[in-house]
């Protein structure tokens, strides 16, 4: 097992492109220099990085090959009508032999180690992370089932492969056949069932809400956690330091932390990417545009604290406990 741990990414080459469903292509990526790719934890994704003529495209795709396969990675890309360039580029421009960079595999979704039964619910291309997860469960002899929605069998990625590989464990719902995937299937599951949902945001929310109402514990409901939106609109704002009784201007190109330091306010910091909580400051007034991943959703909603290394004011003003 050759490991390329020290590198955060590795160069791969597109070795094969297959149309596996209407609007879905599967790409097989083989390592260029290293003999093998890193094995990954089931449910992982990679960030792909392709330099085109104009821009560098960075996109996250779930790995849909076997987690133990180290000769290659596979990803499946659905051509989106609302593509920002990523899926269209993959579908129209990428050719066999092309080289790109992929990150070390990362897990935002993983199998529960204590579940008695695993219940997967996929909408269309949302099936991708579940493939490595189901293969791993089958190896471990664990109990699972998949419910998958698509427009039709032709539009359903991995339809033949899923039917052949997991007979009796997969159930399809094709809308053109008038068959709708509804949260009803969440009922009457055994105690100890864990639910995994991947699909369009509306579907994920519907299933999560229904599962909670039925009494699924919070930790038994797993969804791919999308990475928080980085950056976005960086408008300038002003921060009033309540204890010091003065204003600090925060220009659009500067973080609140940097602006405070420039104004000789000593705020301790550590990671400066919104992860450690060291630079947390109390908020007395004003709405916070939270961009950290340290505070809980509840704490963010209360808005009494701000991580000044990444988060900003929603409007033009914040009053800080400084």
């Amino acid at each position: 097992m050759i490991l390329v741990f020290l590198a955060r990414s590795c160069m791969v080459e597109v070795a094969d492109i297959e149309q596996i469903a209407e609007s879905v292509k599967r790409f097989t990526l083989v390592p260029v220099d290293a003999g093998t790719v890193l094995p990954f934890h089931p449910g992982a994704h990679v960030e792909t990085c392709i330099g085109t003529r104009n821009v560098v495209l960075r996109r996250h795709y779930s790995l849909c090959s076997d987690a133990d396969e180290t000769r290659f990675y596979q990803i499946a890309v659905s051509k989106s009508k609302t593509s920002r360039g990523g899926s269209r580029y993959w579908h129209e421009q990428v050719i066999v032999g092309q080289r790109l960079e992929v990150s070390v595999p990362v897990n935002h979704l993983s199998l529960s180690r204590t579940a008695r039964h695993h219940l997967f619910v996929a909408g269309g291309i949302g099936i991708t992370p579940f493939i490595s997860m189901m293969l791993a469960l089958r190896r471990q002899g664990q109990s699972f089932e998949l419910h998958m929605a698509a427009k039709s069998a032709l539009a359903c990625p991995f339809y033949d492969w899923l039917s052949g590989t997991f007979p009796g464990q997969v159930h399809f719902y094709f809308s053109t056949e008038g068959c709708r995937l509804t949260p009803n299937l969440l009922q009457d599951q055994l105690l100890g069932t864990h639910l995994y949902v991947c699909g369009p945001p509306g579907m994920m929310k519907e299933f999560r809400d229904c599962a909670r109402a039925i009494g699924y514990p919070k930790q038994s409901v797993h969804m791919e956690a999308f990475t928080a939106s980085q950056g976005g609109d960086n408008h300038p704002f002003r921060a009033f330091l309540e204890k010091q009784g003065r204003w600090v201007d925060v220009p659009g190109h500067q973080t609140l932390l940097a602006a405070l330091r420039e104004a000789d306010v000593n705020v301790p910091s550590s990671c400066e990417v919104g992860g450690c909580g060291t630079c947390m400051v109390g908020v007395i007034d004003g709405d916070v545009d939270h961009r950290d991943f340290y505070l809980t959703g509840e704490e963010q909603a209360q808005g009494r604290e701000i991580l000044c290394c990444v988060s900003r004011a929603k409007k033009d003003r914040l009053v800080l406990d400084l």
Partner: peptide, 18 residues
């Protein structure tokens, strides 16, 4: 790193990977 020490989550990225 400062003249005052507080107990906190003082983790920062390990840039070298070593």
């Amino acid at each position: 790193s400062a003249d005052i020490f507080q107990y906190s989550n003082n983790l920062r990225p390990l840039d070298t990977n070593v």
